[in-house]
C-alpha cells in the first residue's frame, strides 16, 4: 500500500455549463491525517470533495485513492473506502428509521444479517446514538441527525471520512458535540467548512482553495492565524484566535498569537492524554498488559506536559 491515501495530481474539472470549478488541484494526504479545506463561496470545495469518491470524474489529471486510480470502473470500489457526508443530513438519512438507515450501506455490501446488526450497533455506539435506533429521522434534532448521518457512513467502515460543511446548521452545543466526536476519530478526515474554529479544532492540516486552485497548504494553526492570507480568501481569523478589542485590520503581535496557539495546543494535549488513557484501559481489557503499560506511560508523560504549557502561557502574558 502506498504511503498516500488520497492524491490529486493536477486535477481539472468543469461543469457541463462550462464553469471551470477545479483548475489544476494537486495535494497528497497520508494515512491518519485530518485536513481542513477552506475557501470562499464558489471556490470549488464541494466540487473537490465530490471527486474523492468518484461522484465527479476529473476532466484531466489523476486522482488516486488507496491503491486505485480513480476511473469510471474503479469508482464503485473507491466508494467503499470513502465515506462522504453532506451538509444537510436530511438528504442522506433517507430510510424510515435510524436503524434501517445505518443498515442500508452494510446491506448493500452484502453482509449477513448478524454482521449488519453488529456493524450498525457499533457505528451507532461510536457516535453515541444507540438509543435512537428505532426513531424515524424526522423525530431527531439537527445534532442527532448529524451524528446518525456520520454513523451511517461509519457503518460502511470507510478508510477516509469526507465531510462538506458538517456543522453549518448546528446550534453551538451540537456543534461542540460534533467537534469532540470528530476529534476522537482516528480516521483520515477531509473536512470542508467555513467554520474555521472547527477546522482549527479538528484538523492538523489546512488547504485553502481559491478559484479552483490550491492557494495554501500547511499546518492548520499557521494558515489559520495568517490574517493576510485569510482575508485574501474572503475568510477571517478563527474567533478563538481573534484578540478582543484589537483594532480591525491591525496585525496581531507575535506573542499574543503564540499565547492563543499555546492555549490551543494545551487543549489538544489534555485531549490526547485522555485518549491514550482510554486506549490503555482498552488494551488491558483485551489482554495486552504490556501495550497497556506503555500507553499508560505515554499518557502520563503527555499529562505532565500540561504543566509546561501552563508555564509557557504564563510567560506569554
Amino acid at each position: 500500500m502506498s504511503h498516500h491515501i488520497v492524491a490529486f495530481e493536477n486535477v481539472f474539472f468543469s461543469y457541463p455549463d462550462g464553469t471551470e470549478a477545479l483548475r489544476g488541484v494537486s495535494f497528497r494526504i497520508t494515512h491518519g491525517e485530518s485536513v481542513g479545506v477552506v475557501g470562499a463561496n464558489g471556490s470549488g470545495k464541494s466540487t473537490l470533495l465530490m471527486h474523492t469518491n468518484g461522484y465527479l470524474l476529473p476532466r484531466s489529471g489523476t486522482i488516486t485513492v488507496g491503491d486505485h486510480e480513480l476511473t469510471k470502473k474503479s469508482r464503485q470500489e473507491i466508494r467503499k473506502k470513502v465515506g462522504l457526508i453532506f451538509q444537510y443530513p436530511d438528504d442522506q438519512l433517507f430510510m424510515p428509521t435510524v436503524f434501517e438507515d445505518v443498515a442500508f450501506g452494510p446491506l448493500n455490501l452484502g453482509l449477513s444479517p448478524e454482521r449488519v446488526h453488529e456493524c450498525v450497533e457499533e457505528a451507532l455506539t461510536t457516535v453515541g446514538s444507540l438509543d435512537l435506533r428505532d426513531k424515524p429521522p424526522h423525530h431527531l434534532s439537527g445534532g442527532q441527525k448529524s451524528a446518525v448521518a456520520i454513523a451511517s457512513v461509519l457503518a460502511m467502515q470507510p478508510d477516509i471520512l469526507v465531510m462538506d460543511e458538517p456543522a453549518s446548521h448546528l446550534d453551538p452545543r451540537s456543534r461542540r458535540a460534533l467537534i469532540s466526536l470528530l476529534r476522537h476519530f482516528h480516521h483520515t478526515k477531509i473536512i470542508a467548512s467555513h467554520d474555521l474554529d472547527l477546522v482549527l479544532d479538528v484538523c492538523e492540516r489546512c488547504i485553502i482553495i481559491k478559484g479552483g486552485k490550491v492557494a495554501a497548504d500547511g499546518r492548520a494553526e499557521e494558515i489559520l492565524s495568517d490574517r493576510k492570507l485569510l482575508e485574501e480568501n474572503n475568510l477571517e481569523l478563527p474567533l478563538s484566535l481573534q484578540r478582543r478589542g484589537q483594532s480591525p485590520g491591525g496585525d496581531m503581535d507575535e506573542i499574543t498569537k503564540l499565547h492563543h496557539l499555546l492555549e490551543h495546543w494545551a487543549e489538544h494535549n489534555t485531549e490526547h492524554a485522555r485518549t491514550y488513557q482510554e486506549w490503555s484501559k482498552k488494551a488491558e481489557s483485551l489482554g495486552r498488559p504490556e501495550l497497556s503499560a506503555l500507553l499508560k506511560m505515554i499518557a502520563d508523560e503527555t499529562t505532565s506536559m500540561d504543566a509546561h504549557f501552563r508555564k509557557a502561557l504564563e510567560l506569554c502574558r
Binding site: 461522484y55 444537510y88 442522506q92 448493500n108
Partner: peptide
C-alpha cells in the same frame, strides 16, 4: 434537486438498484 442529492447519498452507500430490508 433534493431527489438528486438523495440518490447520490444512496450511491455513496453502495446502492445499486435494490433496497434490502432487514426487518
Amino acid at each position: 434537486e433534493r431527489a438528486e442529492r438523495i440518490y447520490q447519498a444512496m450511491l455513496f452507500r453502495g446502492f445499486h438498484g435494490k433496497i434490502f430490508s432487514i426487518k
